[in-house]
Design a protein around this nucleic acid. Structure first.
Lengths: 346, 346
DNA sequence: CTTAGCACTCAACGGCAAAGAGTGCTAACA
DNA sequence: TGTTAGCACTCTTTGCCGTTGAGTGCTAAG
């Protein structure tokens, strides 16, 4: 079922035009394009064929054609070309990352904003998944009589901290000792298991500090399980003519609020570098006329999170991919700095 | 210029109805209300008077009347009654705060969500303003060879931390010493001045660690100056029939994006417990048909930030105020826990 | 195989009349 | 003198209908 050269050319022209304008494209419009030298009648015949093959839809008899999900799939796989971002754009994106970064959350935030600004779509990004990360160090810092800051560092260079409460009789020196003991037990243990191990092995040795151990256990446990998904540029929904209908727009925003589904979709796509889900290819009905394009970011050579955009199937896939690539590069660069300083130290 | 009992009664009925439905209210509708026993003609006469006095507007001749800003002002000052939140609502709001709180940002986030959920408006909340807070302690924690966590605690019990980079030759012990030295210098100094003092006095004593001191200076400086304003429930914009017009809605959301103006308005209102700005009472033209209701929250008896909602002038002020009160209470309760543990320790 | 021509379809647009909600005014009434 | 019923008037909203125009499918000629 291979399409003729001409059919492909016409199909590409239709998709390009539709991505651009958002209005169904007719044969006359096409015949006027300089690189399509055929008459409108010829094009009409081809279009009829393409519709029969399932690549085009027709909203109603006297309207032009719109590309189907199948057409976009073909387009993404074979027709489009992903251009590199221009220098201006690269600069524009880099700018978002140029703030002082001390914390991974800030980096993700910047990435989300850069993405949505550069693509005019709604961007999404997941917090690093730490289950597979291993602990390098656990440190308790006495803050006040009853409170301490629990700091832990993973092999991916990611630092997390949480306040916990502690009995006032524990002094700074003892806390240092405690930190070292715990670090000893859980070094190089994955975060997923660390909480458990802390509870099991430390409980015996440090039975008198049950409450503190419990607090630490809770803190690490909660942080590991937290599934965070950030959005950027949700106002961009107003750019989609397909969401002129307010109730539809509202429904969609409510969908975003319940992040579970999207989180799953993002998490599922972590094995490959890029993932493009077009329209009904999304397993969830609610997104059957949206496309979701995602990529992964890594720290220390391992994928630990994903980011991407969600928008109408009529999406400039070429552009989105090129932006995604560039943002991914920038992201990896910056996150590797979190590690780099350690590597150097080794 | 005091209105008769009857005029007030009618005006209140009009406002109540308009807040409820959002459509201009006519004399017939009013005459049907059980507590208004007058005929529609009588009411019409009174309405004509009220319009002349400036309390009512008429979109066009054959439409009902809508309350003016003046009417809402009167309503807020004299007519409405602020009921306490119901038990159900109280529970609903409390629920938002029931998560494990280890960080002040999480509390603010919860407050914003509770507010917007309970009022159906867009909520805003400013991060604590730390300029007046004084430092209690500065602590450096070595994380890796080249990185350290800078932790500082204020008298308001607020803990902030930032990653900074440090030369690898500084070891943990020395860092402890450094922490104590800096704490000595800046204890009880306001955050605003602390950065400067660190730079000036520490530079002499610790000249060999210029880069570290600089990093600390930067970190504290940046955090103090950061003016953060969080929003919640921006989707609620779809609930406002007055924003049916997409371009208006978009314009409004863009206004929110540029947070400066709103931040100023919030900051200006920190002296009193509650502030209600109706329509043109807002000094900025862009908000001339919005109302902004704010309250302040405190830590240790001092106002350190404000929160509130923004919505169309047609807003259920009574409800909003009662919710604001309750959220404020909850907020103060929880934030005081941040201090409480210290107080007890004293 | 391509293309010019033609009849046909159907959403979009604009004008128009009817409907309905609300008003102001007047006159009657308590 | 204040209240109310009645009525003419205004003005938006709604639905209808014919026109327009973009686009199609089909046929026949090149």
């Amino acid at each position: 079922m291979d399409l003729s050269e001409r059919k492909l050319k016409i199909l590409k022209a239709i998709i390009d035009d539709y991505i651009d304008t958002g209005i169904p494209v007719g044969s006359r419009t096409l015949s006027k394009k300089p690189d399509l030298t055929y008459s409108s009648a010829t094009i009409r015949n081809e279009m009829a064929d393409l519709e029969e093959l399932g690549f085009l839809d027709q909203p109603h008899t006297s309207a032009g054609r719109t590309p189907s999900d199948m057409a976009y799939r073909l387009y993404v796989d074979r027709l489009m070309h992903v251009d590199r971002v221009t220098n201006d754009e690269a600069l524009f994106i880099r700018n978002y990352f140029n703030t002082r970064v001390s914390e991974i959350g800030q980096v993700l935030d910047a990435a989300a904003r850069a993405l949505s600004q550069a693509t005019n779509h709604i961007s999404m990004i997941t917090a690093p998944q730490l289950n597979s990360a291993t602990l390098k160090r656990v440190q308790l810092v006495k803050i006040t009589d009853n409170r301490a800051l629990l700091v832990y560092v993973t092999d991916k260079g990611i630092v997390k901290d949480t306040m916990i409460s502690v009995p006032s009789q524990i002094d700074a020196a003892y806390m240092e000792k405690l930190s070292n003991m715990i670090t000893d037990k859980v070094q190089n243990v994955s975060l997923k298991n660390a909480a458990q191990i802390i509870k099991e092995t430390c409980m015996d040795a440090l039975a008198e500090h049950e409450t503190v151990i419990n607090e630490i256990f809770d803190a690490i446990n909660i942080n590991t399980e937290k599934k965070e998904l950030f959005f950027g540029g949700t106002q961009n929904i107003f750019n989609y003519p397909e969401y002129q209908d307010l109730s539809k727009a509202q429904h969609f925003l409510n969908l975003l609020e319940t992040k579970d589904v999207l989180y799953k979709m993002m998490a599922n796509a972590t094995d490959m570098e890029f993932s493009i889900k077009i329209g009904k290819e999304n397993s969830y009905d609610d997104f059957k006329d949206m496309s979701i394009v995602t990529a992964t970011y890594k720290v220390g050579g391992e994928n630990i999170g994903s980011f991407g955009v969600i928008g109408p199937t009529r999406m400039d896939y070429g552009r989105v991919l090129s932006v995604l690539k560039y943002v991914g590069m920038s992201l990896n660069d910056i996150l590797s700095c979190f590690l780099e300083t350690d590597e150097r130290g080794k």
